[in-house]
Write a protein that binds this DNA or RNA. Structure first.
Lengths: 226, 226
DNA sequence: TATTTATTGGAACATCGTTCCAGACATGTC
DNA sequence: GACATGTCTGGAACGATGTTCCAATAAATA
């Protein structure tokens, strides 16, 4: 089709891959807002017009960057174990990818129809089939797991958006949650009793553990469908 | 503090409420991209500077608009029924609000720390407590339900972002899902067996029903925690 | 009435995604 | 080796956006 395989005509030539990798570096190191075509052109020592020769627009760029990251998640990890374990491993793979590249969360949550999400859908779907969930319930089940993952993805991306660049992420996170918890603790007890209770444990809670607990909750619900 | 209650000094004066309501009209009728300070100023027959006197910035405007919508969801619906039913009603309230105002999905999924989300958290949390979930598991449980809702919110917003303005939503949705399904059906069967199976039912599936199935799945999992 | 304060309207600014185009480069043809 | 052709590059220019700035105005106060 349009994608002819072509040998490099120039030394150090521009290519979609090279552009995408530079974009990922900017996104990881300087955050979502720092990825502009001007910054990207500067890093690649070229002009924005040259980039547009290889990339349709910014959506295309972000989708390619996202797929570049998601594709690396081992979609078929842990062959020998149970389907439950594979789903856990898969979900944790996404979680860890989001941890390493928080902007991915915003991207897949903003554009769930892109190929990167389809990869996750396929990976989860196969395990749900292997679990023996009846066919009529499979789509609903996978959709629920996917929604859960995407919801977390969005939250993770939101956290990263608040983050000042080049700071200690763990320390900042704890400080931020502490601030939120303090604010919550001052809410009207009559209207926010549960939130106030959560505020007590909010700064100490482990995101990864909580995520896994959510997956296990859904997996437990799955038992009732068999 | 800074928020003094003040009587209108001019007839037809600008106010945060009036600005927010105008913003919601634009968001609902013309979509997320149509909400600009210029368009808003034109609709209010004023200048952008006047708006900035009442609103800090665009984030503030969107957060206020979102809270305006979420606050209307009956957080304490169906007093007499079981906690499960209340959670379902609550979740469906959010779902229907997202249906009526799809831009809300993007907003709460992009910014989960805003007050609108806290309202949902409190509403769900109380019912989880009423269900008898042990205290140490309550936060994880509510977080899972919230992630699921936020994930769906993001997907809904993404769908609305594709939508041309002033078109029949239901018809467009069906046509769009048909296109996606056709694309999926052509994927390599070896690598995408599950996605290809889903493609068959994708255009006919009911979002609302699927959402409810997800909630029920989590509720079923909850049984195992008691 | 005179003065102060709250509020308005719109011009101006910096920055963004995107388009446009003149030129540089590599390759196929005589 | 010279020329013509299509591929790729670099950067200027365009339109739109969020935001700031400020002179002008209306209400409140003295």
């Amino acid at each position: 089709m349009t994608t002819k395989i072509r040998t490099e005509r120039r030394a150090g030539a521009l290519s979609k891959t090279r552009i995408v990798e530079a974009a990922i570096e900017i996104l990881d190191n300087e955050g979502e807002d720092a990825l502009t075509f001007r910054a990207l052109a500067a890093r690649l020592a070229t002009g924005s017009g040259a980039i547009y020769w290889h990339i349709a627009d910014k959506n295309d760029l972000l989708a390619a960057a996202t797929d570049h990251v998601i594709a690396r998640i081992a979609m078929d990890a842990a062959k020998g174990s149970t389907p439950q374990d594979v789903i856990r491993a898969l979900a944790l793979g996404v979680f860890d990818a989001l941890h390493a590249h928080p902007w991915v969360g915003g991207q897949i949550s903003r554009n769930p129809w892109q190929y990167a999400v389809l990869r996750i859908l396929e990976g989860v779907g196969r395990q749900v089939q292997a679990l023996g969930v009846p066919e009529h319930a499979q789509f609903n089940t996978v959709s629920a797991i996917l929604s859960f993952i995407l919801g977390l993805a969005g939250q993770y991306a939101a956290g990263a958006r608040l983050l000042p660049r080049h700071t200690d992420r763990a320390a900042f996170r704890k400080a931020f949650l502490g601030t939120v918890a303090a604010k919550w603790a001052q809410l009207d007890p009559a209207e926010h009793s549960f939130v106030r209770q959560v505020a007590k444990v909010l700064p100490e809670h482990d995101d990864r553990e909580q995520f896994l607990a959510g997956i296990d909750l859904i997996l437990a619900g799955l038992e009732s469908l068999r």
